[in-house]
Design a binder for these strands. Sequence first.
DNA 1: AACTAGTCTGAAACTCAGTTTCACAAAAGG
DNA 2: CCTTTTGTGAAACTGAGTTTCAGACTAGTT
Lengths: 197, 197
Amino acid sequence: MRASGRTRTRDIARAAVRAELAQVAFELFLRNGFDNVTLDDLASAAGVSRSTFLRYFGTKEEAVLSVFDAHGAQVADALRSRPADEDDWTALRRALDTVIEQYRQDPDAALATTKLVRSTPALCARQLEKQHGWRPALAQALAERGGSPGSVAVGMTVKAAAALDCLDIALDHWTASDGALDLIGLLDEAFAALGSC
Amino acid sequence: MRASGRTRTRDIARAAVRAELAQVAFELFLRNGFDNVTLDDLASAAGVSRSTFLRYFGTKEEAVLSVFDAHGAQVADALRSRPADEDDWTALRRALDTVIEQYRQDPDAALATTKLVRSTPALCARQLEKQHGWRPALAQALAERGGSPGSVAVGMTVKAAAALDCLDIALDHWTASDGALDLIGLLDEAFAALGSC
DNA sequence: AACTAGTCTGAAACTCAGTTTCACAAAAGG
DNA sequence: CCTTTTGTGAAACTGAGTTTCAGACTAGTT
């Protein structure tokens, strides 16, 4: 037997440690700047060894970005549960509400994180990579919605990519405005811009 | 005086060396895989020191990707010289012809490069970053076309981003098909997918 | 031709991220 | 109680990229 009983307890403990490490790392990054914090700094600040820190997050960047790990699958799932007769573009827009909601839940934390990411080239690059990785999943979900689960047409991928860009750009402006602008409004505006091509 | 006479000669020589280094690096990457080639390997294969190699390309990745450096500005320029009454989406599509043309000029080399990039995570990530850097320039060009050179609306950036995605995805499929599919056709298809949102 | 100033190069030392290996401790599970 | 798995720390290692410095080469100047 592998996954039952005590193992769950362990996984929860693991997640808690992970969250704790991420928290410590985040504060250190904010205070000193991402590039000025070494893995050794992180480890000793968190009271663990460098090895351990790197076991929880494979890289320095992941300590910040692992928060977003689930987003891709979440949006894809949301997409699959949209009504079948809804057009792709609307379905994508609605599916993104899932993510947006998490920003509205705790705007301050979200803003702080996003600001850190956007002002740090290394984090920016990694997040770009991560978002890029969501494309296939979204395109796949679109294909299943369309009734052709096997083949993903170019159009599906393009729409998925464009939707992710809308999210990205809306977040960009939202962050640049220090949270003053309305995130949902920005996203709607972004989607509308492509609605009239 | 700084930029006249002999300095030009030097710059040409520099560019030639750069091209030579890139060529050697490319072959080595193809033969052994990007990750299995160290900077020392590159330097000694090219007959220069590690320092020199890194002076020409700031990073290992740049030795491959510097080919694309001009593309961003090229597309932006092409965009600016499109007729003023053309709609943004069409103008973007036509502006990309500039880049596509370079792929058609030497399809074999282009295919080899693209394949190497797409099959190497590190190169993929850097190129994503580079393309992302073109967004503002394209959005700016769109804004100028629209008669509002000062402010770049969300919509402009979104359109620019989507157009770049179309290029990216078209190239993806083209590469996956080993050059068998028609690149222009793929790009048109990608653009068409967003034309009907 | 001799002098000077700017540029290119190579060598070496250094920092840091990430990997790998190993030994040890703590539990899980039988 | 024993054994097997899992988490941790220590240490050595690889490789990318930075920095510093000294020497060579190249212009333009007088």
